[in-house]
Amino acid sequence: MNIFRFLADLSHMASIVILILQIRKTKSAAGVSYKTQFLYALVFVTRYIDIFFHYVSLYNTFMKIFFVTSTIYILYLMRVQYKPSHDPNIDTFRIEYIIAPSAVLALIINHGYTLYEILWSFSVWLESGAILPQLFMLQRTGEAETLTVHYIFALGIYRLLYIPNWIYRYVTEGRVEPIAFLASLIQTALYSDFFYIYYTKVMQGKKFELP
């Protein structure tokens, strides 16, 4: 494992911890897109189905369990514990627009026509667009809690860091992962606007507000 992948995983983990802390601290899930969280749960369940038949390492297994359980816990917090704080009227992005293209791409571009490979490919494409409901919500409200902003930032950094990881692995191991590489470029592109505003406002201690 190289430093890029490790830092990426840590930042991914941090993003989820930030979100859980925010919801628990404020006893509210206001500003958080339930749809994005639902899509991530779907991403993890479809990708980590191999936990039952494909052992990689203790680290890998631990992280998979963490991502699945923590995301389902967030869904629980939003749906049950702090349900009144979540306003579905501003969380209006149609998730069919992300799920359907991901399914089509998974059927066209994959590593083989087995259920496992198609689900894996689906999860990768789905992940690249899963943040859209959250960004859409941010755009509608125009501003966000600092912690929500840090959450989105940490999540964006995670997939961005996987790009040098793949370049590094291509150079050192000759390993090629074109599907995840391309999906990651798409995902990072979706974040570019957000990163820009984060840099120009939040880094200078200002409130996150869209121009």
Partner: peptide, 10 residues
């Protein structure tokens, strides 16, 4: 590429 099937990442 058989390597890409390994899926050893998260």
């Amino acid at each position: 590429n058989t390597d890409s099937k390994a899926h050893d990442e998260l």
